[in-house]
Amino acid sequence: GPGLTDLFKTEKAAVKKMAKAIMADPSKADDVYQKWADKGYTLTQLSDFLKSKTRGKYDRVYNGYMTYR
């Protein structure tokens, strides 16, 4: 089956995709945050998933999740 690194890459891609969806349409934020909360994502995990070469690119999404939880 898929190894943990593959799983991480898949999760990371999914999280980034959802983060971009929030940035494009902030009204989606609560739905996405709820999904992440259901998956039990911690802020540390989210921070790892949303690492970007562009500093602060996903800060709004991260901060939103922090206040959501």
Rank of each mutant, 00 (worst) to 15 (best):
Y58V: 02
T5V: 12
G1Q: 13
L4E: 12
R60C: 13
D38M: 11
D38E: 14
F8S: 08
A21E: 15
L7R: 12
V15F: 03
S27Q: 07
T42I: 03
T54L: 07
R60S: 15
K39L: 11
N63V: 13
L50S: 00
K16W: 04
W36D: 00
G56W: 05
A29P: 01
R55A: 12
D31I: 10
R55W: 08
K28D: 03
T5L: 12
D38I: 10
K12T: 07
V15H: 01
F49R: 02
G64A: 04
G64K: 02
K20G: 06
M18C: 10
A21H: 05
K35P: 00
L46R: 00
F8I: 10
R60G: 12
T10M: 10
K39I: 10
Y58I: 02
Y41C: 02
I22P: 00
M66E: 11
K51M: 10
R60A: 14
T67F: 12
L43Y: 06
D6T: 07
A19N: 00
A37P: 00
P2R: 07
L46T: 02
A24W: 05
T42R: 03
A29G: 06
K20I: 08
M66W: 08
F8G: 08
T67E: 14
A14G: 05
K16V: 14
D38S: 12
D30G: 10
K53E: 11
G1W: 08
K20H: 10
N63W: 15
T67I: 15
K9I: 06
Y65K: 00
L50R: 01
Y62T: 09
Y41W: 04
S47P: 01
K16E: 07
K17M: 10
D31P: 05
Y62R: 07
Y68D: 01
M66P: 02
V15S: 01
K28I: 15
K9W: 10
G1L: 11
V32Y: 06
P2D: 11
Y65L: 00
R55E: 14
Y58P: 01
G1T: 14
T44S: 12
D30V: 12
Y68F: 12
K35T: 12
V61N: 00
A21F: 07
D38N: 11
K12R: 13
T42N: 05
A29H: 03
E11D: 05
P2K: 09
R60Y: 12
R69I: 14
R69C: 14
L4I: 14
Y65N: 00
P26A: 06
T67L: 14
F49G: 02
S27I: 04
A37V: 14
G64T: 02
V15T: 03
S47W: 13
D38R: 10
L7H: 15
K53N: 11
K51G: 13
A37D: 06
D30S: 10
Q34R: 14
A13E: 09
G1D: 11
M66G: 05
D6K: 08
W36R: 00
K12C: 08
M66S: 08
N63A: 14
Y41E: 00
L4M: 14
A14C: 15
Y62S: 03
F8M: 11
D48P: 03
K9F: 07
Y65D: 01
R69F: 09
Y68H: 06
R69V: 14
G40F: 03
L7E: 14
D30T: 10
K39N: 09
G40I: 01
L4Q: 13
E11R: 06
K28A: 08
M18S: 06
L50A: 01
K12F: 04
A13I: 09
D48C: 15
L7F: 12
Y68V: 02
D38F: 09
I22S: 02
R60T: 13
A29F: 02
A14I: 12
A29N: 02
I22Y: 01
K17A: 13
L7G: 12
Y33L: 01
G64V: 02
Y68N: 02
N63H: 13
R60M: 13
K9T: 05
Y41H: 03
S47M: 12
G1N: 13
I22H: 00
M23S: 03
L4C: 15
D25L: 03
Q45W: 03
S52I: 10
K28Q: 09
F8W: 15
S47F: 10
D38H: 09
